[in-house]
């Protein structure tokens, strides 16, 4: 399995008043193509910062991060935005769909930013894949949490990125919906997508290929299931 993401000794700290918070320290991690990885840890352990750094939403302070063969340290902010668009799909705990747009339009949105007109068939196919095609013309306010998260997953897949980053994607869902959404990620991984999920759920983490556990910004466990 070739490595899609290679992190070597990455660290990130924040200032809070006069105090420096070392959110992640000296993290090294190789994530292979089609691998489904869960990141676990207590609140404040550094899961979110690690995901944000891998997703190029935060700049790393030190170390190196290579995504699909490109070292992000060499890239400008604009180049990172473009690379993020090409490589990553994001799924948030709170969905973050645009409330004024329909499910269909929310899925079409990444195409607008990438300057690509996504075909109607492609969008409907994605909605069909996540099981909400019948809700294509509904707005987020007219959908359940599970349906909104499925639309968010379809949006993350709109530009067919090789990597999906999901932060507590089942955190706001009931058990049945959580399992269904997780099943979707499983399916995507089997199709060759690299899936990185931050979760608190031991049960869901066990269903991933690999579990990385963090404590105080450092990896304390890195095991394959």
């Amino acid at each position: 399995m070739s490595d899609t993401i290679i992190a070597k000794g990455i660290s990130k700290s924040f200032k809070r008043g006069t105090e420096t918070i070392h959110a992640i320290q000296d993290i090294s991690l190789n994530i292979g193509k089609g691998e489904m990885l869960s990141i676990m840890g207590r609140s404040g352990s550094g899961k979110t910062t690690l995901l944000s750094c891998i997703g190029m939403l935060e700049n790393i302070d030190s170390g190196s991060l290579v995504l699909e063969g490109r070292n992000i340290k060499d890239l400008s902010e604009a180049q990172r935005t473009i690379l993020r668009r090409e490589l990553m799909g994001f799924v948030f705990q709170r969905f973050f769909l645009i409330p004024t747009l329909t499910a269909y339009e929310n899925v079409a949105l990444p195409g607008l930013f990438a300057g690509k007109k996504l075909g109607k068939d492609h969008i409907m196919e994605l909605l069909e894949m996540v099981g909400v095609s019948q809700r294509y013309d509904h707005r987020p306010g007219q959908m359940s949490g599970g349906e909104m998260q499925r639309v968010a997953i379809a949006r993350a897949l709109a530009l067919d990125p090789p990597v999906i980053i999901a932060d507590e994607p089942t955190g706001n869902l009931d058990t049945a919906n959580a399992e269904a959404v997780f099943g979707l990620f499983r399916k995507l991984a089997s199709q060759g997508k690299t899936i990185i999920i931050a979760t608190h759920s031991q049960k869901l983490a066990k269903d991933c290929d690999r579990v990385v556990e963090l404590m105080d910004g450092r990896i304390t466990r890195d095991e394959k299931n």
């Binding site: 979110t48 935005t81 993020r84 994001f90 973050f96």
Partner: peptide, 9 residues
């Protein structure tokens, strides 16, 4: 406006 960070739990 910066990109939205992963919200965390």
């Amino acid at each position: 406006a910066p990109p939205l960070r992963m919200a965390g739990s």
